[in-house]
Amino acid sequence: MPIYLADVLKNPDVLRHPATEHKCCTCGVPLQETITGKRKTSGGFACSDCYYELLGREVEERPLSSGGVRRG
């Protein structure tokens, strides 16, 4: 369905929420880079909250190590 300027002036929502809008692949929140974050994962784009939650779980299971030799 074509959208025209007059449609947007009558109802801005016709433009604000199209069917193709990216949503978080985990929680479904509409993604806005500066608000929710928009991070690429193998499952699609995710919001920052979900991204860090999922990655954090992995790190809790297997902590990150530098492997560097310390003093002595």
């Binding site: 920052s48 954090g56 809790e60 990150l64 190590s65």
Partner: peptide, 23 residues
């Protein structure tokens, strides 16, 4: 920036601490 180490006490898992350290 290299994240040299991130670890969470095993008894404190599943509270989201790993994620907030990475954030």
């Amino acid at each position: 920036m290299t994240v040299l180490e991130v670890a969470v006490d095993p008894s404190e898992k599943d509270k989201g601490y790993g994620g907030l350290l990475l954030r």
